[in-house]
């Protein structure tokens, strides 16, 4: 092995352990709507504490109706609309704002960057979501 190849191998190994330790998944590894939480997505879960079946969204959604919980856990196959109990925001900058009503109407719960929470007001009452700047929560 040449010195350069040895160096490359060492760095690749280092990066892999960084990914495993930090939980950071490169954006390229994550396709939305594939049931895997990664990259810059919002994941919604059927049960509290980020348990049960989930759905991963990269971009805003005016109505959760057409999206089903994926995988084999509790709630799999059911519509995400009005059935999410908890959330995980994997975006490092944008806040996910989850609305009580369709089309970003009515009151909302915020999931701040890189946090997990059980939904409060929108627990089993989630209809739509948008991404917002962290301050002053201006949504796009």
């Amino acid at each position: 092995m040449t010195p350069i190849r040895r160096l490359t191998a060492a760095v690749v190994a280092g990066m892999l352990s960084f990914s495993l330790v930090s939980g950071y998944v490169p954006a390229a590894a994550a396709a939305e709507h594939d049931g895997g939480c990664g990259g810059l997505e919002l994941c919604l879960f059927y049960n509290s504490g980020q348990r049960g079946a989930s759905h991963d969204f990269r971009y805003k959604v005016t109505d959760f109706g057409p999206y089903a919980f994926l995988g084999a856990g509790a709630g799999a196959g059911q519509s995400v609309k009005n059935r999410a109990a908890s959330a995980w925001n994997l975006d490092g900058y944008f806040t996910a704002r989850i609305y009580f009503n369709s089309g970003y109407a009515g009151p909302a719960d915020d999931v701040t960057p890189l946090t997990k929470r059980n939904l409060g007001d929108t627990y089993n009452d989630n209809a739509s979501f948008n991404w917002c700047h962290r301050s002053p929560l201006v949504c796009g």
Partner: peptide, 22 residues
């Protein structure tokens, strides 16, 4: 703006920029 930001950058650029924003 978020979609425009994502679509204008490669995944490698996004890794750096999102870490910097965060």
């Amino acid at each position: 703006v978020r979609r425009e930001f994502h679509e204008a950058h490669t995944d490698a650029e996004l890794e750096v920029l999102v870490a910097c924003l965060s």
